[in-house]
Protein backbone atom coordinates (compact mmCIF):
# COMPACT_ATOMS: atom_id res chain seq x y z
CA UNK A 1 0.00 0.00 0.00
CA UNK A 2 1.96 2.94 -1.29
CA UNK A 3 -0.15 5.81 -0.14
CA UNK A 4 -1.87 6.41 3.11
CA UNK A 5 -5.57 6.00 3.27
CA UNK A 6 -7.53 8.80 4.84
CA UNK A 7 -10.43 7.78 6.94
CA UNK A 8 -13.36 9.95 7.66
CA UNK A 9 -16.92 9.01 8.19
CA UNK A 10 -17.32 5.29 8.15
CA UNK A 11 -13.67 4.69 7.36
CA UNK A 12 -11.32 3.64 10.09
CA UNK A 13 -8.04 5.35 10.38
CA UNK A 14 -6.95 8.50 11.98
CA UNK A 15 -5.03 11.44 10.72
CA UNK A 16 -2.04 10.91 12.98
CA UNK A 17 -1.45 7.46 11.59
CA UNK A 18 1.17 5.29 13.27
CA UNK A 19 3.12 2.36 11.85
CA UNK A 20 0.79 0.10 13.86
CA UNK A 21 -2.29 1.64 12.22
CA UNK A 22 -0.61 1.52 8.82
CA UNK A 23 -0.11 -2.21 9.33
CA UNK A 24 -3.75 -2.58 10.36
CA UNK A 25 -4.87 -0.80 7.21
CA UNK A 26 -2.62 -2.79 4.93
CA UNK A 27 -4.21 -5.95 6.26
CA UNK A 28 -7.65 -4.44 5.89
CA UNK A 29 -6.78 -3.62 2.31
CA UNK A 30 -6.37 -7.35 1.78
CA UNK A 31 -9.67 -8.16 3.50
CA UNK A 32 -8.19 -9.16 6.82
CA UNK A 33 -9.58 -7.68 10.02
CA UNK A 34 -6.91 -7.68 12.69
CA UNK A 35 -7.33 -7.83 16.44
CA UNK A 36 -4.29 -7.49 18.69
CA UNK A 37 -3.00 -10.01 21.19
CA UNK A 38 -0.72 -9.14 24.08
CA UNK A 39 2.69 -10.78 23.71
CA UNK A 40 2.92 -11.09 27.48
CA UNK A 41 -0.48 -11.92 28.94
CA UNK A 42 -2.41 -12.92 25.78
CA UNK A 43 -5.23 -10.42 26.36
CA UNK A 44 -7.11 -9.74 23.11
CA UNK A 45 -8.33 -6.41 21.76
CA UNK A 46 -10.72 -5.45 18.99
CA UNK A 47 -10.33 -2.93 17.54
CA UNK A 48 -6.62 -3.53 18.06
CA UNK A 49 -4.36 -1.53 20.30
CA UNK A 50 -0.60 -1.41 20.28
CA UNK A 51 -0.20 -1.62 24.04
CA UNK A 52 -1.91 -4.08 26.34
CA UNK A 53 -4.36 -2.36 28.65
CA UNK A 54 -3.53 -4.76 31.46
CA UNK A 55 0.29 -5.01 31.43
CA UNK A 56 1.30 -2.36 28.85
CA UNK A 57 3.30 -4.94 26.92
CA UNK A 58 3.30 -4.86 23.15
CA UNK A 59 0.19 -6.32 21.51
CA UNK A 60 0.68 -7.89 18.07
CA UNK A 61 -1.78 -7.73 15.21
CA UNK A 62 -3.43 -11.10 14.67
CA UNK A 63 -6.05 -11.99 12.09
CA UNK A 64 -9.65 -12.34 13.26
CA UNK A 65 -11.04 -15.65 12.17
CA UNK A 66 -14.63 -14.82 13.10
CA UNK A 67 -16.80 -13.04 10.56
CA UNK A 68 -20.27 -13.60 11.94
CA UNK A 69 -21.64 -11.74 14.94
CA UNK A 70 -24.89 -10.74 16.61
CA UNK A 71 -26.22 -7.23 17.00
CA UNK A 72 -25.44 -6.03 20.55
CA UNK A 73 -26.88 -2.55 20.08
CA UNK A 74 -27.53 0.00 17.36
CA UNK A 75 -28.53 3.55 16.58
CA UNK A 76 -30.17 4.97 13.48
CA UNK A 77 -28.58 8.38 13.07
CA UNK A 78 -31.07 10.77 11.48
CA UNK A 79 -29.31 13.93 12.55
CA UNK A 80 -25.58 13.65 12.04
CA UNK A 81 -22.58 15.66 13.17
CA UNK A 82 -21.58 18.33 10.65
CA UNK A 83 -18.89 16.28 8.94
CA UNK A 84 -21.39 13.53 8.12
CA UNK A 85 -24.42 15.67 7.58
CA UNK A 86 -24.38 15.11 3.83
CA UNK A 87 -24.44 11.34 4.23
CA UNK A 88 -28.11 10.97 5.03
CA UNK A 89 -29.36 8.38 7.48
CA UNK A 90 -26.86 5.81 8.67
CA UNK A 91 -26.87 3.02 11.22
CA UNK A 92 -24.07 2.46 13.71
CA UNK A 93 -24.02 -1.02 15.17
CA UNK A 94 -22.04 -2.78 17.86
CA UNK A 95 -21.65 -6.40 16.81
CA UNK A 96 -20.57 -9.11 19.23
CA UNK A 97 -18.56 -12.06 17.92
CA UNK A 98 -18.99 -15.51 19.53
CA UNK A 99 -15.61 -14.98 21.24
CA UNK A 100 -17.10 -11.95 23.04
CA UNK A 101 -15.00 -9.43 21.11
CA UNK A 102 -17.05 -6.50 19.85
CA UNK A 103 -16.75 -4.21 16.86
CA UNK A 104 -18.44 -0.89 16.08
CA UNK A 105 -19.22 -0.28 12.39
CA UNK A 106 -21.97 0.85 10.05
CA UNK A 107 -24.72 -1.43 8.81
CA UNK A 108 -24.80 -0.45 5.16
CA UNK A 109 -27.50 -2.63 3.62
CA UNK A 110 -30.35 -1.57 5.87
CA UNK A 111 -32.45 -0.62 2.86
CA UNK A 112 -32.99 -4.36 2.39
CA UNK A 113 -34.48 -4.65 5.87
CA UNK A 114 -38.22 -4.77 6.37
CA UNK A 115 -38.11 -2.96 9.72
CA UNK A 116 -35.72 -1.48 12.26
CA UNK A 117 -32.76 -3.57 13.41
CA UNK A 118 -33.35 -5.93 16.30
CA UNK A 119 -30.86 -6.58 19.07
CA UNK A 120 -29.68 -10.17 18.72
CA UNK A 121 -30.06 -10.36 14.94
CA UNK A 122 -27.17 -11.89 12.97
CA UNK A 123 -24.54 -9.67 11.36
CA UNK A 124 -21.90 -10.50 8.82
CA UNK A 125 -18.57 -8.72 8.49
CA UNK A 126 -17.90 -7.18 5.09
CA UNK A 127 -14.89 -5.30 3.73
CA UNK A 128 -15.40 -2.30 1.49
CA UNK A 129 -13.30 0.06 -0.63
CA UNK A 130 -13.99 3.32 -2.32
CA UNK A 131 -13.66 3.20 -6.11
CA UNK A 132 -10.29 4.94 -6.11
CA UNK A 133 -8.97 2.43 -3.57
CA UNK A 134 -7.76 5.13 -1.25
CA UNK A 135 -10.30 4.48 1.45
CA UNK A 136 -11.10 1.12 2.97
CA UNK A 137 -13.29 0.04 5.81
CA UNK A 138 -15.18 -2.80 7.43
CA UNK A 139 -18.94 -2.90 7.69
CA UNK A 140 -21.77 -4.98 8.98
CA UNK A 141 -24.33 -6.58 6.70
CA UNK A 142 -27.65 -7.84 7.99
Amino acid sequence: MAERKELYLGYTTDKAMTPFMQDFLENLDEDRLMKSVCTSCSAEYLPPRQHCQKCLSEAKLTEMTESEATLYSYVVVNFAPETLSSKGVYIVAIGEFPSGLKLTAHITNFATMSGPPEVGMPLKLKFAKEADGKMITYRWLV
Binding site: L7, G10, T12, T13, D14, V75, A80, T83
Partner: peptide, 19 residues
Protein backbone atom coordinates in the same frame (compact mmCIF):
# COMPACT_ATOMS: atom_id res chain seq x y z
CA UNK B 1 -9.79 6.79 16.08
CA UNK B 2 -12.51 4.20 16.48
CA UNK B 3 -15.80 5.98 17.23
CA UNK B 4 -15.83 9.49 15.80
CA UNK B 5 -15.17 8.27 12.22
CA UNK B 6 -18.40 6.30 12.40
CA UNK B 7 -20.42 9.38 13.17
CA UNK B 8 -21.35 8.44 16.72
CA UNK B 9 -22.75 11.74 17.89
CA UNK B 10 -23.53 12.58 21.51
CA UNK B 11 -27.17 11.46 21.14
CA UNK B 12 -25.98 8.36 19.28
CA UNK B 13 -23.98 7.18 22.31
CA UNK B 14 -27.10 7.35 24.45
CA UNK B 15 -29.25 5.82 21.71
CA UNK B 16 -26.92 2.80 21.83
CA UNK B 17 -27.75 2.56 25.55
CA UNK B 18 -31.46 3.03 24.84
CA UNK B 19 -31.58 0.29 22.21
Amino acid sequence: RWEYPYGISFPAFYALMAS
